[in-house]
Nucleic acid binder design. Structure first.
Lengths: 158, 158
DNA sequence: CAGGGGTGGTTGAAAGCCGGACGACCTGTC
DNA sequence: GACAGGTCGTCCGGCTTTCAACCACCCCTG
């Protein structure tokens, strides 16, 4: 038996779909117009910039950015062509490679970051009260944990 | 001067990106595996099913689903191949076409709806208290309104 | 230390997506 | 009633994503 969404739930759900789609597009477009990179590119650069020696294993980076291995591989191809990232062989595991942020990549990130942060503030954070934003973050943290955990049988909760 | 995100804001922002990406993927994959349609397809079918005579102008449908005209056109191509939707000429405006839900499309929607609703509940609604979910919806409604409105100069708010 | 199963990452082909250009058509104005 | 400017939907070219196959390598087991 399906328990349907009542009218209010449906309204909230549509607001969710609507807002998340629009926000993602807007932030990505702003980055692209100002700096020629997408939001996905930006997130890769951020991860690398935070990593020790500004390098990460491909698979780790794929997990962190929620990309498939194949997708990340292509994406790194492009970033490599743009000289924002380069690949290097992994010392300890000869199957592996590291993605390394180039100096040019670092500079690009430093330039793009204000655009990104301003967008996040303008189109999200500053539209809400601090409590609202905190509640949003906490609620979505629950969702993220749920979706990220290996699928437990639902019964386990009973 | 850029006002950076503090550590807490950053945590919330990452939860946002993480959860919205995962949730979208999960719901789309569930639909695809069970019924061979994506979330975007599903939303088109829903809009058509709710419209008078189960038909809508292409441009209206594009706006409603936040798709570019070009993207919608391709998407309708696919749905037409799958016999879920068909096109028909618009009577009152010879430039236009209507997308019409076929009987088969209606049946597919009726079949897919329980999967979708169950997913939304399992991975979002039922993870939160009713208040949390309502707050989420209301906060995102603010965001959606903001992003949807024609760009006012920021000064207008002062 | 040989073999088998698993993992890391890349690749190519096919499908999907977007922006921009386009032809067709509508509508207001003179 | 002609024309200018807008709107409707499609199409083209180029890029992105996905899927599945693949090679190279690791590691465990016997």
């Amino acid at each position: 038996m399906t328990r349907w969404l009542d009218e209010t739930e449906q309204r909230h759900w549509r607001a969710y779909i609507y807002a998340t789609t629009l926000l993602h597009e807007k932030l990505s477009r702003e980055l692209q117009e100002a700096h020629g990179i997408t939001l996905a590119d930006y997130e890769i650069l951020v991860r690398l910039s935070e990593a020790p020696d500004r390098r990460l294993r491909m698979s780790h980076l794929a997990d962190a950015t929620l990309a498939s291995r194949s997708r990340l591989s292509h994406q790194i191809d492009r970033l490599e062509k743009a000289d924002l990232v380069r690949r290097e062989a992994c010392e300890t595991d000869r199957r592996g490679s590291n993605a390394v942020l180039t100096d040019h990549g670092w500079d690009a990130l430093v330039e793009a970051a204000p655009t990104h942060v301003a967008g996040v503030r303008e189109h999200l954070v500053d539209l809400l009260t601090p409590e609202q934003f905190a509640d949003l973050g906490n609620a979505l943290a629950v969702v993220a944990r749920h979706l990220n955990s290996p699928d437990l049988p639902a019964e386990q909760l009973a």
